[in-house]
Nucleic acid binder design. Structure first.
Lengths: 122, 122
DNA sequence: AGTATATTTGCATTATGGTGCAAGTACGCA
DNA sequence: TGCGTACTTGCACCATAATGCAAATATACT
């Protein structure tokens, strides 16, 4: 069993290692905005969140909408103000699911004898 | 308490939302390589992992070393071949820690009454 | 020593993405 | 209707990073 063939098993991990989600969390500014929102614990306006870092409000707006597209936060518009909330449940669920999936793939004895006989020689 | 002030509490989350880690997982090619390695379950050579996707081997090499710098995988050189293994334990621990930290910040009742009185009006 | 294999590095190219500014849209209020 | 506020979008600019190719390095084998 080669790594390529091994890819055919352990299905769940492929969907969980979603580059889009991680990309959303990979920018320092965005990370800071999210951290701010996570700790706030309630719905914050774009302007409120914007106070967390010294960037243009348009940048904040774009980052928050990107986080929403990634499923990390949710927005609700009331009048002319937009409130953002962290989707705590979903984010936790995703992180735990990734941990679980990785753990399931983790062989009991990792090295040097390959438990699954993959990777050719090894 | 504004979002800015709220940032002062709930400390752990800031260190856990490390953009560097997520950046490592944010590239599709890298994600695929990692998924391949995770499912393989044992130490794979650069060439082996490279079979997972249609990119130059030099690209694979660079991606794997980046993943190592991010603490996602570990390498060991034996002779002229380099073996990469996923650091299952560390990755799981990190993901769970993030989930835990987020959950701790999650207010019991999220909306519309803000449990922490932050975000001004709301 | 000479050749083959495994991986890395330098370099140029291209793609992606973050940023600020200015203008635009949407809505509330007088 | 006109003005102010909250946010978004278009655009240009700049930085970072992904990629392939070719060359270099390191090691094994004969």
């Amino acid at each position: 069993m080669t790594p390529v063939q091994a890819s055919a098993c352990c299905r769940p991990i492929d969907d969980l290692l979603d580059p889009e989600l991680f990309k959303a969390l990979s920018d320092p500014t965005r990370s800071r905005l999210l951290g701010c929102l996570v700790k706030c614990g309630c719905a914050c306006t774009v302007s409120d969140v914007g106070e967390c870092c010294a960037v243009d409000l348009s940048v904040v707006s774009r980052h928050l909408s990107l986080l929403e597209r990634a499923g990390v936060v949710q927005s609700s518009k009331t009048g002319r103000t937009v409130h953002y909330v962290v989707d705590y449940a979903r984010l936790c669920r995703t992180m735990r699911a990734i941990a679980d999936a990785i753990e399931q793939c983790c062989p009991a004895e990792q090295l040097p004898g390959c438990a699954r006989g993959c990777c050719g020689a090894r």
